[in-house]
Simulated assay, not measured.
Amino acid sequence: MSLFVLPGFDCEAFVAATLAEDLGQGLPGGGHDVTSESVIPASARFAGVMDSRDAVTVCGLPIAAAFFRALDPGMAIEILVEEGARVQPGTALMRLTGNARAMLTAERGALNTVQHLTGVATLTRSYVDAMGQTRAKLLDTRKTIPGFRHLEKYAVRCGGGHNHRMGLWDAAMIKDNHVAVAGGVAEAVRRALAAGVSDVICEVDHLDQIEPALSAGATRLLLDNMGPDTLRAAVSLVAGRVPCEASGGVRLDTIAAIAASGVDYVSVGRLTQSAPAADIGLDFTPL
């Protein structure tokens, strides 16, 4: 069985856990699809079409296929569009033919995954488009659903965005609480570098924090909750010594001005935190 491959993500375990949750495995009376088993003959077969009801940026179809093949390894599945494709309403995304019970049992897990990831990719694409022709790159954050981080960050990439650090392990990000305990941005940065951390991102709330952070050796600055005018001033002070990231309160109607300020990155938590599910359906026909 061909499974979706993504570093840090176990597709087989994800599918198995999601199906087990839906089937109530391990609970009294659980472990089966009561409705399908009582209504649908075991030998019945369906043909199905998954399609989009809205204009979306598609993400998650190979994972949906893994749901169906987990319950019917012989199911014929044709994925009709590439990941990250922008499609119009009414576009067929996937065709499948196989055991009817398997399709019905896997349907919700498959659709939930595709709807959520497509929602993230679609929202990301809208932010990328709104940035206009600037050199700034759109970043996600760690504001992800627990257990879904690798999938949601994959969806951001499908939508044309880029990933910030994957977690607490791959870069230091010094924020206000770290600064408060350390006694200042310079001391916080020095401590991180002394500990052997190579990538040290330092959040600054005020322009007068920039020089101390840079002098201490910060490798990137996160310019927090600054308006476009202040961002331009900050970029001028940094003068290209390290990359600059704008973050905090970024919206679709403000990102163009923020991106045009000269920053290298704009990070947006709502890409993964607040993306609405895409309207994607799956219709079956008995064979």
Score class of each variant (00 low, 15 high):
9 F>E: 05
9 F>Y: 09
9 F>T: 06
10 D>S: 13
10 D>Y: 08
10 D>I: 08
10 D>N: 15
10 D>G: 12
11 C>D: 03
11 C>P: 07
13 A>F: 02
13 A>H: 06
14 F>M: 05
14 F>S: 05
15 V>C: 09
15 V>K: 12
15 V>R: 12
16 A>H: 04
17 A>Y: 02
18 T>L: 10
20 A>D: 14
20 A>E: 07
20 A>C: 06
21 E>Y: 10
22 D>N: 11
22 D>F: 09
23 L>E: 04
24 G>T: 04
24 G>F: 06
30 G>T: 02
31 G>N: 10
32 H>C: 11
33 D>G: 05
35 T>H: 09
36 S>Q: 10
36 S>H: 07
38 S>W: 14
39 V>E: 03
40 I>R: 14
40 I>G: 11
42 A>Q: 13
42 A>I: 05
45 R>V: 12
45 R>A: 14
45 R>P: 13
46 F>D: 15
47 A>V: 10
48 G>P: 12
49 V>A: 13
51 D>A: 15
52 S>A: 14
52 S>P: 09
52 S>F: 04
53 R>E: 13
55 A>F: 07
56 V>H: 11
56 V>F: 09
57 T>Y: 05
57 T>D: 07
60 G>W: 00
60 G>H: 00
61 L>D: 01
61 L>W: 01
61 L>V: 00
63 I>V: 14
64 A>D: 00
65 A>L: 00
65 A>P: 02
66 A>D: 15
67 F>N: 05
68 F>G: 09
69 R>H: 09
70 A>P: 03
70 A>W: 00
70 A>I: 02
72 D>E: 02
74 G>M: 14
75 M>A: 11
75 M>I: 12
76 A>R: 15
